[in-house]
């Protein structure tokens, strides 16, 4: 009974655990905002290294209008058009491969597969996603290269087609996973209601589930594009790495990312060429930021509904 008559002032003391709790809260908060700090840090540091070039050597019309990327010539020019087109063409082919296959796989895994098959397929997709980009590059360089030369009877197998297929296979697992999540998120009552009306599975998928999951599917495609856009090692190794505006899938090209990877080692810190590579980095950062932001906004769109 003696405890009951204690006045709160005696009970209400800030003990060690109270201070530990506040300290931990601060530490966790620092951990939480670290992601923001890092993203800002990335932008600040690549801008810091690239800003001098943007103000001196950079010409907007040359950068976006010229295909002459000649950083080492005595009169260097920095036209990134061929690199942009190279990246775009490879990403384009990658999406032609990845979109139908990953959406098809997502639909099959989410709506048709059951039990052990479903688990196995999901595990395989996960393993596909785990293969490192340099291994994909090596596959493009060795296996795909020979395959394309044999099948299409072309002299060089390192080209838009090769890099596109490799990139498609790389982007597909992520797109499949996100698309499957979107399909899974469609409530079962939608399916049941349509089934009760006598619709077939396929009709339900086409007319009920796909429209309901539309935003998630679009976001899956966007993230796939972002992934293809930013992939470095695989594209460097499989695309042929030749500055070129491609006219057919069998032309070699050069990607933005690959250019940085191939040339950064040879430049002197602070040189114009070095700055130009960081400028490419700024460009890549901004584009992927926009793509990711768009994907996020599209997904947020579903939640609002």
């Amino acid at each position: 009974m003696s405890e009951k008559t204690l006045a709160p002032s005696q009970l209400d003391q800030r003990d060690a655990s109270w201070y530990v709790d506040k300290l931990v809260q601060i530490l966790m908060f620092v951990g939480g905002i670290s992601a923001i700090i890092f993203i800002i840090g990335i932008f600040v540091f690549i801008t810091k290294e690239g800003i001098a070039f943007l103000f001196e050597g950079f010409s907007f019309t040359e950068f976006f209008g010229s295909i002459n990327w000649r950083p080492t010539s005595s009169n260097p020019t920095y036209g990134a058009l061929a690199l942009i087109v190279g990246t775009a063409s490879v990403t384009g082919v990658a999406m032609l491969v990845a979109i139908p296959f990953s959406l098809g796989a997502a639909i099959y895994i989410s709506e048709f597969a059951t039990g052990r098959t479903k688990e196995t397929l999901k595990v395989l997709v996960e393993l596909l996603a785990a293969i490192p980009s340099v291994v994909w590059g090596f596959i493009g360089l060795s296996i795909m290269n020979e395959f394309i030369i044999e099948v299409f009877d072309v002299p060089i197998g390192l080209n838009v087609l090769n890099a596109g297929i490799i990139l498609g296979l790389m982007a597909a697992p992520i797109m499949t996973t996100i698309a499957e999540d979107a399909l899974k998120a469609v409530p079962d009552r939608f399916r049941e209601a349509a089934e009760a009306m006598g619709a077939t599975r396929w009709q339900i998928i086409r007319q009920v589930i796909m429209p309901a999951a539309k935003n998630g599917l679009v976001s899956a495609v966007l993230l796939g594009v972002g992934r293809g856009f930013g992939e470095t090692m695989a594209v460097l190794m499989a695309s042929g790495h030749a500055i070129n505006i491609p006219t057919s899938p069998f032309d070699s090209v050069r990607a933005l990312t690959a250019t940085i990877a191939a040339e950064l080692g040879e430049t002197a810190q602070g040189s114009e060429h070095y700055g130009a590579l960081f400028a490419l980095g700024i460009f890549l950062f901004i584009i992927t930021f926009i793509i990711n932001l768009a994907a996020d906004l599209v997904v947020r769109g579903i939640r609002k509904k």
Binding site: A7, S9, L11, Q13, R14, D15, W18
Partner: peptide
């Protein structure tokens, strides 16, 4: 008020 003190005024709400 709990035990005569506003609950929001307890300095250590865990002790509360």
């Amino acid at each position: 008020r709990f035990m005569g003190t506003e609950v929001s005024a307890w300095r250590n709400d865990y002790a509360l």
